[in-house]
Simulated assay, not measured.
Amino acid sequence: MREIATVGLDLAKQVFQAHGADAQGQTLFNRKLRRSEVLSFFEKLPPCVVGMEACGSSYHWAREIGALGHEVKILPAQYVKPFVTRGKTDAADAVAISQAMKRPDIRSVPVKTAGQQAATMVLRTRTFFVRQRANAVNALRGFMAEFGLVANRGIANFGKLVAALPERGDASIPPAARLMLDEIVTEIEALTARIERIDDRIAAHAKQDEDIRRLMAIPGIGTLTASSIQAHVPDPGCFKSARHFSAWLGLTPRQNSSGDKQRSGGISRMGNADLRSLLYIGAMGVLNAARRYGTRSEWLRRLMDRRPLKVVAVALANKNARVVWALLTKGGSYHVPAELVEK
């Protein structure tokens, strides 16, 4: 039997599909595996390259299969899709993974450790609770508006919204409605307490981490943004340059060019949406401060004079992303540009 060079593994919950090929790409097998059979199957194989699509369980299987002596490559799903021929089947997906991982221009996703996954889970859990709290506040606002009780929008005005509620027993609100409003208020307070506990944990970790402290020196990057960058980008060196990093975040223009005609559209919004959002929010904070108090940055001042505010925010977020990449790959600390130093 010819030697197995690559195995494309289509992941699933219970039934997996494995496609094996030799060095020339000829199919050697394409078989189904039950979940309990996966590790024993790869344990019997000689060391080879195993490819799989990036998904929720890919890091777990990459660590388990890699521990058996195989080289594991995790490929972005959108890069595997073009190699799928005809209909959608597990067998076709496994073949597509085998073909895609042989392309040298397709970059694989770095395998995360269990600790790195736990760090991202902390941030995703916080995002989940924040989204739940926003839904609860919107529900409370909508129900109260039905009885003519309103307050300014935003979580910062939640106290004013609660203060607008009349005393219990007030005839203007039926008892059943008041009971439901109290339940929603209790849920919002519980979610707020959970978010604060997670924020305290993130802040405590940030104080002990040197990389996070260096990133926080950049204007527009706080504890949450720096912690998210460290969790989601464990190996910034996998990006060739700062532009590659900002393009991965979706902060560079979309290209629609042909021949000598160069057309650039809005930002691509590809990559990690959470990091892009945090960098944009931080940039908006810097711009709001610059509009209120002024700025000594000539670059920022000129950009604000000739471009819309949100476009400037994207440009500043792009610039901060490049600075982040430089600090994480080349070391050193952030220094305020000479033009911003107080004379």
Rank of each mutant, 00 (worst) to 15 (best):
H19I: 11
F239K: 07
P166E: 04
L287T: 04
K261N: 02
L161W: 01
E37K: 11
G285V: 10
A177V: 15
V84P: 02
N30T: 08
S268N: 14
S277V: 01
R63W: 04
E53R: 03
G169K: 07
D10K: 05
A77G: 13
I212Q: 00
D90F: 05
Y293H: 15
L275K: 06
L181V: 08
I267M: 07
L123G: 03
V84Y: 05
A18R: 00
L278I: 04
I212Y: 01
I4A: 10
Q230K: 14
R201E: 14
A92T: 08
T127H: 12
M101H: 04
S258M: 06
V341H: 09
A190R: 13
S40M: 05
K32M: 11
T252E: 12
L303N: 14
E183N: 08
K330G: 01
L327M: 13
E3V: 09
A290R: 07
R213T: 10
L9V: 10
A204M: 08
R168K: 11
V84G: 10
Q14G: 02
A190I: 02
V50R: 03
W325L: 09
R296F: 02
P253D: 02
N138T: 12
R322D: 12
D305V: 06
S108T: 10
V286R: 03
I155H: 05
R263M: 13
P337N: 10
V314G: 04
A193M: 09
M121D: 12
P47L: 09
T329P: 05
A119V: 00
L303T: 14
D182A: 14
Q26R: 13
H60D: 12
H205V: 06
